[in-house]
Amino acid sequence: MDKTIPSAGLGAELTGQLQPVVDSLGLAYHRHLVSVLLYGSAARGDFISGRSDVNLLVVLQSVRLEDMAEAAKLLRRWRKLKIAPLFLTAGELRLAARAFPLEVSDIQESGHLLCGSNPFAAIVVSPEHVRAQCRRELHGGLIRLRQGYLKLLDRGEAMGGLLAGAITSLLPVFRAIVRLNGTPVPTTDMEVVESVASRHHLDRDLFTTLLAHKRGSIRLATADVRQILSRLIEEWELVVALVDAP
Rank of each mutant, 00 (worst) to 15 (best):
L93K: 13
G140S: 11
L152T: 05
L113D: 11
I83D: 00
L86A: 06
R98C: 05
Q147K: 08
A122L: 11
E128P: 01
A72E: 13
G111A: 00
A97K: 04
V124K: 14
L150H: 15
L114T: 00
Q108E: 04
D154C: 09
L114W: 03
R94Q: 15
L88Q: 10
A84K: 03
C134Y: 02
F120R: 06
E92A: 09
S117V: 15
R98W: 08
V124F: 13
K73W: 06
A99G: 08
Q133Y: 10
Q108G: 02
E103C: 00
H112I: 06
G116E: 14
N118G: 04
E157P: 02
R144L: 11
S117A: 15
A96P: 02
Q147A: 08
E109V: 03
L88F: 09
L81S: 03
R98Y: 06
L88E: 07
S105E: 12
S126L: 13
I143S: 08
I143P: 00
L93G: 07
L86V: 08
L152A: 06
F120E: 06
L75E: 05
Q147P: 00
G156D: 14
R144N: 08
R155Q: 09
A99E: 15
Q147V: 04
Y149E: 11
F120D: 03
L145K: 04
L114R: 01
L93Y: 11
G156H: 14
R79G: 12
V124E: 15
L88H: 10
K151F: 06
L142P: 00
F100G: 01
G140C: 09
K73M: 04
K73N: 03
G140F: 12
C134E: 07
Q108K: 12
L150Q: 15
D154R: 14
Q147N: 07
D106K: 00
V125A: 05
L74V: 03
L102K: 01
V130A: 08
L138Y: 06
A158V: 10
G91M: 09
L75N: 09
R98H: 07
L114S: 00
D106L: 04
P119H: 10
A132T: 11
